[in-house]
């Protein structure tokens, strides 16, 4: 690194900090909302009502197998094209890039997490469900007390992967004008024409964040594992 670049990076430090903060907000909020959505969808996906199950399946399939770039682009620029959307009560929300990003990321992570949750739910031994039924537990109680806690625990390692993927996916928010970490890095790279140095710096920040996430998930795995208590 030569010194003009170094001084350019130093001058951009506040931008890097605010970009990192925006990344953290987007990821945390989308993951939270996505988890709620995913739990709901996973339950619907395993429902015995065929239309409900197929709707959940369709949602999961569409959002898992198209690029996030396309999803976020269509939700932000696509929906804005329709007069009906611009006249609707939702427009104050949809005209903001921030909320469009949250909506797109939530729908995306919701689909992936729903599949992870389904795996977790299916891994709960059937004998336990039968035992709970024999004790007189009904649907909601059964889910809340027996199935979901174990499903969460089972799904945790795969969910750790999903958190990291969401962290990386959040980089796409810059195409709808949100200057998160990658957006800041891209802007500085385009201004200074020194992309590799700038992206290495941003990469180090991402690496730090995913290291923290990996450690956190590891700790949670240990605490939730009854055999290690």
């Amino acid at each position: 690194m030569n010194s003009p670049l170094l001084s350019a990076l130093m001058a951009a430090l506040p931008q890097f900090v605010s970009g990192t903060w925006l990344t953290v907000q987007l990821v945390a909020l989308s993951l939270l909302l996505g988890l709620v959505l995913a739990t709901l969808v996973a339950v619907l996906r395993l429902s015995h009502l065929t239309p409900v199950s197929w709707a959940a399946r369709g949602y999961i399939h569409v959002f898992r197998s198209t690029p996030l770039l396309v999803q976020i682009f269509l939700i932000y620029y696509g929906l804005g094209q329709f007069d009906a959307v611009r006249q609707s009560v939702l427009w104050p929300l949809l005209r903001e890039p921030y909320w469009c990003a949250i909506i797109a990321f939530t729908l995306n992570t919701g689909a992936y997490t729903a599949e992870i949750m389904r795996g977790g739910i299916e891994a709960v031994p059937h004998g336990q469900v039968e035992a709970a039924r024999a004790c007189g537990m009904n649907g909601a109680l059964l889910f809340r007390r027996i199935i979901l806690p174990q499903a969460f625990r089972q799904a945790l390692p795969a969910y750790g992967n999903e958190i990291i993927l969401m962290l990386q996916g959040s980089a796409l928010a810059s195409i709808i004008t949100l200057m998160e970490l990658t957006g800041v890095a891209k802007a500085i790279a385009a201004r200074t024409f020194q992309p590799i140095e700038v992206f290495c710096l941003a990469g180090a920040v991402y690496l730090g964040m995913s290291f923290v996430i990996t450690r956190g998930v590891h700790l949670a795995e240990r605490r939730l594992n009854p055999a290690r208590k």
Binding site: Q168, A171, G203, S210
Partner: peptide, 18 residues
């Protein structure tokens, strides 16, 4: 696995290629 999963894929491709 930690590094490659931790940094954005674009960066990995940049570094490997250039």
């Amino acid at each position: 696995t930690t590094i490659v999963r931790g940094v954005p894929s674009l960066l990995v491709i940049y570094l490997l290629f250039f």
